[in-house]
Design a protein around this nucleic acid. Structure first.
Lengths: 152, 152
DNA sequence: GTACATTAAATGTATGTACATATATTTGCA
DNA sequence: TGCAAATATATGTACATACATTTAATGTAC
């Protein structure tokens, strides 16, 4: 995508205020990054939420994770972890088995195939390749401060 | 939601870099704002994409808009405008009729009922009530600059 | 120890997203 | 004119989201 101000990108000539513009700009930029990432993942046959779950599972490995833990750590808390795990299980990227200690919970574990897939993706998914690196480190820190303040 | 740094919200103790953290923070904050907005709209029986389409149609009113124009102005360009218009049509918030000049295109027009609904929502949807107003105007402008830079 | 509340995960349903394909109409050019 | 390319919209399919409900297991109060 070529350089564009948010006004041009959504063909809206004016915003009510700098606040309103920032609101739209934030949603738009997030979509932009997510779409870019989805495109990167496509050749590997997984979607962005599936990738995020795999990453959490690698973080736990060799310990298993429960579905609750996945929900807790997912970016989108309201998404449906069970069904994302379904898709990963079909692809043999994770295993799922009832936990003997508490039979309500399920132990989800990343497989060797899952770990190998992530390793392949790691090479491409270096964050120096994301748009974030158009910022200086100081700017990135400032962005973090502003975003945390929005959610206060 | 109570004040939290992004580390605490997704229970991740450390990020690789300030850049990586900013990336996650941006996606997370966008989700947060979208969810907040969805909750606000729920009592009115429309979803966030449906609301956005209605807003575009109000901007055109009393002229109609084509589906192409809707796609052009939607935040998420790849979403399916036809089906969102379907939902709005069922609720009598828009009308759709073939355009006589070019019978490939469709004139989508917001109804009085649609306009009345937006008017109701306007009262609540003042952007001073969004998290963006935790920022000063200067900070909002800085946020816009950083976001535009990310998409460069 | 039975009854009731709580918790963990799965399932149902409506909507939206992503992307490929289909259908109809118009445009442009040989 | 006639026919291929381009355009506008709709449709099909797989996946995800949002949220309510269900099922099963556990905890707890009596």
């Amino acid at each position: 995508m070529t350089t564009m101000r948010i006004e041009d990108e959504i063909k809206q000539s004016a915003f009510k205020s700098e606040f309103h513009k920032a609101y739209i700009n934030l949603l738009y930029t997030s979509n932009y990054l997510e779409q870019e990432h989805g495109t990167l993942l496509k050749p590997f046959g997984i979607t962005s939420p599936q990738y995020n779950v795999l990453r959490i599972l690698r973080g736990q490995h060799p310990k298993p994770a429960t579905v609750s833990l996945l929900i807790e750590r997912m970016l989108d808390k309201t998404s449906n972890a069970s069904r994302i795990v379904d898709k990963l299980e079909v692809k043999d990227l994770v295993t799922r088995k009832q936990c003997p200690d508490d039979r309500r919970t399920v132990d989800v574990l990343i497989t060797d195939k899952g770990l190998a897939l992530l390793k392949q993706i790691d090479v491409l998914d270096d964050d120096t390749k994301t748009g974030i690196h158009n910022l200086s480190e100081k700017e990135a820190a400032e962005l973090n401060r502003l975003l945390d303040k929005i959610r206060d």
